[in-house]
Simulated assay, not measured.
Amino acid sequence: MKNTNPMLLTVLSKFNNQEKMKIKDFLLSEIDDDNLNETIAFVKSNDLEKSDKFKDILYEGEDYEGFNIEGNQYLISSKEDNVLVIDSVSEANGVPKNECRLSFYIGDFIELIQNKQEVVKLIDNLM
């Protein structure tokens, strides 16, 4: 894997194989050029900014606390320096929470989503 970003390898090394596959699925189903900058702005913002600037994409259900942006299958929330990604569809279908949730340091999360294609290829090569 020549020319691989060493930071991506370091970030991915924090996750087991099942979690890496969940990261890949999340990236492929939720992150694209249209929402990349909006996702980064959301995770960097405070609660007041989230409720004001992102109200059109916020999760409106009652199953999850805090401010979450809602995608096709996943919810994304952030608090302080941490980002939580929740596979809400799997969770709603009875999959245990520890298999449906991924926690990231905010810098790691941003690095992963900004390098989506490289991360997906890297996960494929690591599996």
Rank of each mutant, 00 (worst) to 15 (best):
K2F: 14
T4D: 12
N5W: 04
M7R: 09
L8C: 03
L8E: 05
L8N: 04
L9E: 11
L12N: 04
Q18I: 13
K20N: 07
K20S: 07
M21Q: 13
K22N: 13
K24H: 06
L27V: 05
L27Q: 00
L27K: 01
L28M: 11
L28W: 05
S29R: 10
D33F: 14
L36T: 01
L36S: 06
N37C: 09
E38K: 14
K44F: 05
S45L: 07
S45G: 03
N46Q: 04
N46L: 03
L48R: 11
E49H: 09
S51W: 05
D52M: 11
D52F: 11
D52H: 12
K53E: 10
F54K: 03
F54L: 01
K55D: 13
K55F: 15
E60G: 14
G61I: 00
E62A: 13
Y64P: 06
Y64S: 06
E65F: 07
G66K: 01
F67P: 03
F67C: 12
N68K: 06
I69S: 00
E70K: 08
E70N: 06
E70H: 07
N72A: 09
I76F: 00
S77V: 05
K79H: 14
D81L: 10
D81E: 14
D81T: 10
N82V: 11
N82D: 14
V83E: 02
L84A: 11
V85E: 02
I86D: 02
S90H: 15
E91L: 10
A92R: 13
N93K: 07
N93R: 09
V95M: 12
V95T: 14
P96E: 11
N98R: 11
N98F: 12
R101T: 10
L102P: 02
S103Y: 12
F104I: 02
D108N: 11
F109W: 03
I110C: 03
L112C: 07
N115R: 02
K116P: 01
K116E: 03
Q117V: 07
